[in-house]
Amino acid sequence: MNDWRALQDGLAGQGYIAAPDLAMALHLSISLGRPLLLEGAAGVGKTEVARALAAAEGTRLIRLQCYEGLDAAHAIYEWNYQKQLLAIRAAAEDGETGTAVERRIFSEEFLLERPLLQAIRQPEAPVLLIDEIDRADEEFEAYLLEVLSDFQITVPELGTIAARSIPRVVLTSNGTRDLSDALRRRCMYAHVAYPDRETELTILHARAPEVEARLAAQIVGFVQAIRRERLEKVPGVAEMLDFAAAVGGLGVADLSTDPAVLHATMATLLKTEGDRAAIPPEVAARLVGRAA
């Protein structure tokens, strides 16, 4: 019954530190065979969950990146038209009959699998990551619902393809539009927040063990302080790791020693002009002083 702790440890083994709420939601979504919907600000590690899960379970990760105008041909399957045309041309020279050609060019050989079809045809359950579902259109969302509830796909020329294994589905959303209630109801839900100080320290330690403890505490404290400032783009976990790498790469042992270097490395944290202006070197130095 403590599977979710085992799962949490498994993820930690892959360098992903999951909050208890997230680990529980993930555990339930696996046990109940339901998709997991993850929401949260950009850069809190939503996509990374799927990656870590696939690595921890030793299965494939199949990723479907959503975008405006994504349609079935890019998400599910498409016929390989060029190959079909070539086959028709070749068949004409060989004198093959029309029905035989037709049967041949609408066989699996000519079918291009896209992520959704690919995911349900794996012999071993893969992790299917549907990234930024909020960017796709509502029509696609409705279609996705159907696939996610039946796990079968109908290709008119071939018939219905049933799932060989039920993939573990992880959906992420940045909340650029409200998702439909139907989709929310089908899914387990977890909201991923920015990690607290302790968790972030553990993440930094897991990802960059070479950073010594005192500097790590300073880096995390500084980034947490920056998140509390009024910024346009709040730095996420990935930015924090970049910052740590930058600081480590420059051989800085203490953030407070050289304000100029600190200001230069902040290019990894602050990505807009307005944010750069909002935290001048003096403010940064003050934040470091408080974080230490």
């Binding site: 019954m1 208890p20 709420d21 529980m24 839900y189």
Partner: peptide, 21 residues
């Protein structure tokens, strides 16, 4: 799938099921 006697665990499990935003 969870240890239902533990209120914190039950809380997390029910939260994953019931909360949608």
């Amino acid at each position: 799938h969870v240890c239902a006697a533990d209120p914190e665990m039950t809380r997390r499990a029910l939260k994953a099921v019931c909360a949608g935003s």
